[in-house]
Design a protein around this nucleic acid. Structure first.
Lengths: 208, 208, 208, 208
DNA sequence: GATGAATGAGAGTTCATTCAT
DNA sequence: TATGAATGAACTCTCATTCAT
């Protein structure tokens, strides 16, 4: 940017927008989309009513912004984990699975409020945007499916279980953990949590 | 009831109430609690606006009635399965687990609309009622936990995994299946689904 | 109607609707469409906010209802005058013109508030409804044009003036009278006013 | 101005002000006062939001400026025509009337957008300013009235018609033409239009 | 007991105006 | 002086709930 003035202005603008976005995230996570009012959000952001509408065209738009950003980052993460599992391996398979799960848990932990919003309110808001988010969710599931198939083909996973169904299982586990467990956890609990997750995922409950 | 007249009236009342409850369940499942209006419900039940308020004190009350009933029946089911696992056994352990899962899936399938409501909207409606429902959910989880502990003690399940966490995992799997899978399934798919569920739960994904 | 109950209800409904319509007409006439608020209207009608929306879907809808009704009645009047001028004549031509003008003036006088609304606010509200109202206005003009042409052909009017333009002239005179004269007039002034109108229309200003 | 700097500044200021005024005129004419927003105006003038308020205290003020200027120029024109009719005459009376009408039509044509604004939105904006504009309108009418009276006294116009009413008629004709005819006309149509106008005004419709 | 018209608090949104830069 | 982000009063409209019939 040549113009330092406008550069500063732009930065201020982005800061403000992000303040409002954070406020909205927090309010949505606490009250849910419908019970949350614009008044709640602007109060949380210490902004004026009109300011909100300078940055977002509507209540729905902030919501969609939050959800889309979360799902997109999630998909990026999944894609990264996907590719990682293709690259030359230096650590044991189990270790790699655990790392993947941990990354994922950390991502959810870092974006806990957004995760709650996504898990709880993501449907039922707006049919148009719903499709996009459903697409993203399907894409995440598809990435998981691919990973499972690859591991089945590599002889690591057995072939009895449907990859599609398994993806549902894993996502369900994640969502439940995000919605009802993670907010009571500390960051230092995550590795142990990942261990448990992996153990359940890979070995099941049966003693052998 | 001595009075046959009032007996008939009572019956009519209950019929009406249940019609409204069903209508509300269907509407809530389709639109979500907040997007659903009293107008939607009374239209679906072919009832007058005022009639609704003769049977339920408020919109929230119907909702709570639906959720509570679902969670209570679920807990009943879990308790029954719990007790079943204590009674003298005639079939193999795996078979019993599978039967339990299947019962559960069938219960969700039978109450699919209520299940969706519970899974998606149950929080965020009203802090007072939320506690009660959280209690019920905790109770369901506790029953699962007890079952797991018993099986750990019986040497069936290994002791590495936290029973509490496992209960989360299993509930998460159920909820995801209820919210995003069951509505595409036929009743005849359920046994196979139960097989997959049990296989994942007991054996995990790893090939051995 | 068989059902006297619902008949009474229907009547009450219509009464209420017409109260709101009158209130809206009065408020629009006084303040103009844009400066008038729903609050003004319901206050003038002693109705609750929600009641307004039981009878009209929006502020625009009441407005369109008022304007359309006025223009439709106006067109009916014009059509009637049109046909009258075709029927066998018992009175002098001038007398008939005067009667026509008087009817028209009386119509405007009777619906003075609506007339003001139509003359002043009718455009600029909503492109969709604007077309319909423009159609009506064109139809009124067309009826006038036909009348003029007929009289030209009958040798009553000279042929120098364009009928179309003349229709504009006459409507302009009417609108101005409606917007800026009639509200100061008494009903008993109308015949004299009609005389003046006719004299101007037929003979112009020039002394002969 | 001694100071060439400030002279230049003043000129720039006036230019800017007039740009904004023109933009406002155009926007008001297209959308009407109420539907037009400050955003529309500053966009049309390529000015910043704050700049607008350096030149006009409020939205209302621009509007009043436009209307008042129009009505003042109109009155000037009328006064000039008035005086002209007093000065020694070189051309026929009819010719002079025609010239007057033509001047007037040309004035409306030149200021078509302002004319539309004045005709359509002039009332209903603000009671205080309304009086001033009503005064101007009355003054225009008064000038017309004087002209008519003079011609009645000169034996040119007959005495049957009320001068006041006639002024209403003529203004109504003008306004209607301005609002609904002139925008479809070309400048070269104006003389013929003036002919028609004069013919109607002087001779009426009756064939003789 | 059933009905549905009436109610009004409160929601999201707009936009003329202000003011810090 | 010019800018455009910030402001908040006021708007239209919704809908859970009440109440007269």
């Amino acid at each position: 940017m040549r113009n330092p003035q406008s550069e500063r202005a732009r930065r201020a603008r982005e800061k403000r927008r992000s303040e409002l976005l954070d406020a909205a995230t927090s309010v949505f996570a606490r009250k849910g989309y419908w019970a949350a009012s614009i008044s709640d959000i602007i109060q949380a952001a210490s902004a004026a009513r009109g300011s909100f509408y300078r940055y977002f065209r509507s209540k729905q738009e902030v919501f969609v912004a939050i959800v889309d950003q979360f799902r997109e980052e999630e998909m990026l993460l999944v894609k990264r984990l996907d590719e990682l599992s293709l690259s030359p391996q230096t650590v044991s398979f189990q270790e790699r699975v655990r790392t993947g799960i941990l990354s994922w848990l950390e991502f959810y932990y870092r974006n806990l409020q957004a995760a709650k919003i996504v898990v709880q309110d993501a449907n039922m808001i707006d049919p148009a945007a719903a499709r996009k988010r459903e697409d993203l969710r399907r894409a995440v599931r598809a990435a998981i499916v691919r990973m499972i198939v690859r591991r089945q083909e590599a002889g690591l996973y057995h072939r009895r279980i449907s990859p599609d169904l398994t993806a549902h299982f894993l996502l369900g586990m994640f969502d439940e953990i995000a919605a009802n467990y993670l907010d009571k956890a500390k960051k230092s609990d995550l590795p142990a949590l990942a261990d448990q997750f992996v153990d359940f995922e890979l070995n099941g409950l049966l003693r052998r």
